[in-house]
Design a protein around this nucleic acid. Structure first.
Lengths: 106, 106
DNA sequence: CCACTATTTGGCTATATTGCCAAATAGCAA
DNA sequence: TTGCTATTTGGCAATATAGCCAAATAGTGG
């Protein structure tokens, strides 16, 4: 693999990696419904505020979400809606696997 | 986040994580064009055979690719085509980010 | 059986990620 | 300024991932 291709794929893998964590999937799903501040997300997730903040900054750096400060709070929004397609394709993967397993048994 | 949701998201994150590596993105892209044996992919990637084999087993365990042994060789195929949507959405992310950066400068 | 090729697995080290706590920063209000 | 709340950042320990080499496994042919 030539270095140019390598660099290109590293960048793309880095964006996908931003999605590759359960907490961050939760956040993206939640933000697909409505914007949320860090404290709201922290409450729903049940982790340390700093942990949630770091997850959000990973998503923000990747370019998947955007933030807006209003008063004391920082609100996060989903910036790229097509990222939700990840969910449906992942469901396809799971369904296919489940169907295969069922087929092996029956 | 309740344990049920957590488990569900962990499973989905695990599948996405299988895509979150430059070498595995290369493999998926290559397999989207045609099936390939491990030795062919190893040649294109330029890593140790064992490394490529491990990447392939990650993709296989995730349910994204499937394999078929023919003689000495094991051929891998892309099983879930919608995974290619990941690429186009990632391009959207990159384009949006690039447009923003350009806007800030000009 | 032996030799040879293709692939997988085990084991190791280096590196990256995660999550907590503590501390720093930012904004609002007295 | 001081105090309070929301968020981010730094640092650390635990865990996970990646890549190489060496060894094991599987299939082919003499």
């Amino acid at each position: 693999m030539d270095p140019r291709t390598q660099k290109k794929l590293e960048l793309r893998a880095w964006i996908i990696k931003a999605m590759a964590h359960p907490t961050r999937l939760f956040i993206v799903d939640e933000l697909s419904k409505q914007e949320r501040c860090v404290c709201e997300l922290t409450g729903m997730i049940g982790a340390d505020t700093s942990t949630v903040s770091k997850h959000l900054s990973i998503l923000k750096n990747a370019g998947i979400v955007e933030d807006e400060k209003r008063g004391l709070q920082v609100f996060y929004r989903l910036k790229i809606r097509c990222i939700l397609n990840f969910f449906s394709c992942v469901e396809s993967v799971l369904e296919t696997t489940a169907r295969e397993r069922a087929g092996l048994v029956g």
